[in-house]
């Protein structure tokens, strides 16, 4: 087991809501350095809301969020930007800049944050594209000219442009064919091993949960009801978790594995 269990993100008593309704109530969660944390929950349970709140895109009603040991409420403008440069985000819908080509999208943070030569940026963009499994000519295309799966990959390439320490992935493999989804998992794993990447991955993909996630956290009724290695969640008595992992789809996957 890894000795260093430093928390890169830690969330305490978080409450987030819209109007009358609280979507997240007193939620606690830790993300440890170097791990891949899978995050599961029913549709509409607030997974994206949690990610967006940590990223500072949604206001919280109560609680604290710490990133890299710093309370995000207490950091100044500059420090906050420095922290933001250390994480990358893959939004559920890709969120590529529609008026820039894929290459320019990937180079955007490089251009803004570092003073690199155009040649190096082009080479890096091409390398990133290749890493996420896109053909080189994709670089010159506009986001509107890509398929759904290609958008996902291009968005991942953009989120990795600065070699961040943490990446937030919101359903990275949804909408990909099984082979691509498998490649995507391998890619995440390779990046984690080589770059020491910490990954927060919202996913419904049972295969991803089994093969790449070190720990899995389950969200239900606004709280994290269980967190730990997938095996411990599989054994949980919680009815929702039972249904999630031992429902028809979960079962077929498990039996497939045993063969």
């Amino acid at each position: 087991m890894a000795p260093a269990q430093e928390n890169v993100i830690s969330v305490r008593n978080l409450r987030v809501g819209f109007g009358q309704r609280d979507v997240l109530k007193d939620l606690d969660l830790d993300l440890k350095r170097g791990e891949i944390l899978g995050f599961v929950g029913a549709s509409g349970s607030g997974k994206s809301v949690l990610a967006r709140t940590i990223l500072g895109l949604l206001p919280k009603r109560a609680g604290t969020i710490e990133a890299f040991g710093r309370n995000l409420d207490q950091v100044g403008e500059e420090e906050r930007q420095a922290i933001e440069r250390r994480w990358g985000v893959l939004f559920q819908g890709g969120a590529l800049f529609s008026s820039l080509t894929v290459r320019q999208n990937i180079q955007f943070t490089l251009r803004e944050n570092l003073h690199m030569s155009q040649r190096l940026m082009d080479e890096i963009a091409a390398a990133k594209l290749e890493m996420v499994g896109l053909p080189p000519d994709t670089g010159a295309k506009l986001p509107a000219e890509l398929s759904g799966g290609m958008v996902k990959r291009a968005a991942l390439a953009r989120s990795l442009a600065l070699d961040p320490e943490i990446v937030f992935l919101d359903e990275p493999t949804s909408g990909l064919d099984p082979i691509s989804a498998g490649d995507f998992d391998d890619l995440i794993l390779a990046l984690q091993q080589t770059l020491g990447l910490t990954v927060f991955m919202v996913t419904h993909d049972l295969d991803s949960l089994h093969t790449v996630c070190d720990r899995v956290a389950a969200l239900s009724n606004g709280k994290v009801i269980a967190v730990g290695p997938i095996e411990s969640l599989l054994e949980s008595k919680d009815p929702w978790l039972q249904a999630y992992f031992h429902g028809k789809r979960g079962r077929s996957r498990m039996s497939g594995k045993k063969k």
């Binding site: 890894a2 000795p3 250390r86 320490e165 070190d214």
Partner: peptide
């Protein structure tokens, strides 16, 4: 996936 290097001595940035 479980066999991987985790004890990387990465500084905080």
């Amino acid at each position: 996936g479980k066999a991987r290097l985790k004890s990387l001595p990465f500084g905080v940035g």
